[in-house]
């Protein structure tokens, strides 16, 4: 087995030039689409009941990055979202808090103020989210603004155009620049897998982001369809598992967009459990980027505890 030091050294070597980086990424083992999708489908058939379901529902709630990323967002909307983040179920104080609230940079200060002392992080998208089509200077400034406003997590997007045209060095340099600009904030790197299309690309982009200093790799902005899918998340979980094997470092994974039901969320947790392993069943290492998912989790949670489904009006809109 590779020791931690030699693993880090050899990977540092990989990023010493664009040519080496390129050869490394293109040399990663391929992903067979049929096989990867079949594996995800099989994991999706796990039957999670009773005590396991109760555990999974609470874990899923505690992993949510409760998100609103709309042009129409207002400070009022953010305050409501933060109240919900702190106490997701008004009728049940035992429901856990979510992990973070995720907003645009201009609303970070509002969220930060609302969440003070709660332990809930504020995540901000940055770097000309969602398209990433802007100069590096603007992306860096966008990141600095978010951090200055108090963002604990920065969710950046990669330059998909550069990635798809094979300019891996450019993508790498951009991530390292944002990594630096983000300072102590957690860096989540959004791959926008719906635009990368192939699982081979997803694996390469995952490694590229990890090598460049990502704390988390994230599937999607939520603005492109398809957003998160189970097979894409499976491939990313395999990447963080293999990266951990090589370096000893734990990188997180965040599927975002399109996960709306408790049933789906549980399939993701099963996939985490049986791919990266139980270490990743922790909000520090796995998050859901979601909004409507929370209400379904709360509804299932109440059903499990009381035997009855409350109507949707018993849960808050945001």
């Amino acid at each position: 087995m590779t020791t931690l030091d030699s693993g880090v050294d050899s990977l540092a070597d990989v990023t010493s030039s664009e040519d080496r980086l390129r050869r490394f990424l293109l040399g990663l083992p391929g992903v067979d689409q049929v096989g990867a999708e079949a594996r995800a489908a099989t994991l999706g058939t796990r039957s999670i009941k009773t005590t396991a379901k109760a555990y999974a529902l609470d874990l899923a709630i505690s992993m949510i990055d409760l998100t609103t990323l709309e042009g129409q967002d207002t400070p009022g909307k953010i305050r409501a979202l933060c109240a919900k983040a702190k106490r997701p179920d008004p009728a049940d104080p035992t429901a856990p808090q979510v992990a973070a609230v995720c907003v645009y940079p201009d609303l970070v200060a509002t969220a930060k103020h609302e969440l003070k002392g709660s332990g809930i992080s504020v995540a901000s998208v940055a770097t000309a989210f969602p398209s990433g089509r802007s100069s590096l200077a603007i992306k860096v400034q966008d990141t600095k603004d978010a951090v200055a406003a108090g963002a604990d997590d920065v969710d950046m997007v990669i330059d998909r155009g550069a990635f798809l045209s094979g300019r891996y060095g450019l993508v790498f340099d951009e991530i390292t620049a944002i990594r630096e600009a983000a300072g102590d904030a957690h860096l989540k790197v959004i791959l926008e897998t719906g635009e990368l299309v192939t699982y081979d690309n997803v694996r390469r982009a995952s490694w590229l982001a990890m090598l460049a200093g990502a704390d988390f790799i994230k599937t999607s902005t939520g603005k492109v369809s398809p957003a998160a899918t189970l097979p894409v998340t499976l491939v990313m979980l395999e990447a963080v598992r293999d990266y951990h094997e090589a370096t000893g470092l734990h990188i997180g994974v965040k599927p975002a967009g399109g996960i709306r039901t408790a049933k789906d969320a549980i399939k993701y947790l099963v996939t985490v459990n049986e791919t990266a392993g139980p270490d990743w069943l922790d909000p520090e290492l796995f998050r859901f980027g979601a909004s409507s998912l929370l209400n379904d989790l709360l509804m299932q949670r109440t059903k499990l505890a009381t035997g009855n489904y409350p109507g949707p009006d018993y849960f808050t809109l945001d």
């Binding site: 039957s47 999670i48 396991a52 379901k53 555990y55 099963v270 139980p278 069943l281 922790d282």
Partner: peptide, 10 residues
């Protein structure tokens, strides 16, 4: 945090 043990699902 406890581990994710799958309860029997017969």
């Amino acid at each position: 945090m406890s581990r994710f043990e799958y309860a029997p699902a017969p």
